[in-house]
Design a protein around this nucleic acid. Structure first.
Lengths: 212, 212
DNA sequence: TCATTGGATGAAGGATTCTTCAGGTTTGGA
DNA sequence: TCCAAACCTGAAGAATCCTTCATCCAATGA
């Protein structure tokens, strides 16, 4: 099944020479820019190529169709966020639960903010592209990492609640989404970050208490 | 400014005879159906008209362009959700804060679930259409209603925290979105509903304590 | 009954967009 | 230097799609 996805949406050819690597990078970056400046429905392969400073033909040498181009950018972003959160999980093992949560939430928020423009751009195309499906897969991946981390918490008696973790993840992404789409200022983002920590900590504590 | 929006996206003509009312209703319903079965990028005016059992020309008699059709359906849905929440706010005045929160959260969730198919369909087109803008306007509207309600809470000393309310609203919609897009079962939705109440209650309590 | 207004039709114009491919340019190793 | 492989070009084919408008049908009320 992974093979199907690869042949349908995967890149057509990998760049070998440095020149080509630069080209592919420029194409991806141009995709983001066009998405931000023109919107999803006016993103055309020609426009992306022009913005990247190459011809359309070049674009089609690396991506079999428009879909696969968008998907590649999307997948790459999700991967980076996942890696950041997983690293935070690994670092936070054996610490008190509230600090675990703080670290994970902050890692997630920071990863999204790192390239806020990409996040905003991708919100516009996620719906086409099996967006929800990839989001779900990423969610499961993050949940597993968090679950493993919580198992090492010294102050947690019961096994961690899977459902509560999903809840927290979707709440965080919801809050981040509206802040990002609203184009919030750095000051507001700091506040959102702090409050998200508070929100997750208080909910996880309440959920654990209820489960007992 | 409202006039600009009206002339650009507003319906072209209001139905007068019952026959026309039925037609317009069929067109809106068909829009949802096509969105669900074909996706946003393959939603064509011809397809919508066919599904509604009318010709394209009829569609263009009521909506000046594809955009305005989508926008009308979108706006209508947001209005219904808003009204449901506002009604809940009015009903919950002068009650303990935790019950206020429970009622509002449940009202929101129930309103979304009422026509879950519409919610899911709209996630696919919100990005085009000034989606975020309308979402923000609706958010402000809801926040005001909630703020007014909280002012009557007997067990709340400080004035309600605007930021916290926005936080709660975006967290709720995030959780609902992922549940809806995942096509969760009724049982799961009941659990989401209960946990969202818990999440909002514990966060609001924590935020109030911190603010003191 | 009959004129007037509302409502519906759907072929066709006009405009985009995706994607290909034949041929030219650049790179890197032998 | 020289060649094969990698890379790039961009005009043009093929396929959609949005929107209009001339024309016909249905309802209303005087």
């Amino acid at each position: 099944m992974a093979a199907d996805v690869a042949t349908a949406f995967g890149p057509r050819k990998m760049p070998i020479q440095t020149r080509a690597t630069v080209t592919v990078g420029a194409i991806c970056e141009a995709t983001i820019q066009v998405l931000l400046s023109h919107g999803a429905d006016r993103l055309t392969t020609t426009r992306v190529a022009a913005r990247a400073g190459v011809s359309v033909g070049t674009l089609y040498q690396y991506y079999p169709n428009k879909h696969s181009l968008l998907f590649a950018v999307f997948e790459d972003h999700m991967n980076k966020v996942s890696q950041a959160v997983e690293a935070a999980c690994a670092d936070a093992c054996y610490r008190p639960m509230s600090e675990m949560i703080r670290r994970v939430v902050e890692a997630f928020v920071d990863a999204k903010m790192q390239r806020a423009d990409i996040s905003v751009a991708l919100y516009k195309v996620a719906p086409d592209l099996g967006g929800p499906a990839l989001v779900r897969r990423t969610g499961q991946r993050l949940r597993k990492a968090i679950e493993l981390m919580l198992l090492t918490a010294p102050d947690l008696k019961l096994s961690p609640d899977r459902f509560a973790i999903d809840m927290v993840l979707s709440a965080i992404s919801g809050a981040m989404r509206s802040a990002l789409e609203a184009g919030a200022s750095p000051a507001v983002f700091r506040k959102v970050r702090a409050h998200l920590v508070l929100l997750c900590q208080s909910y996880m504590a309440a959920a654990a208490a209820k489960g007992a």
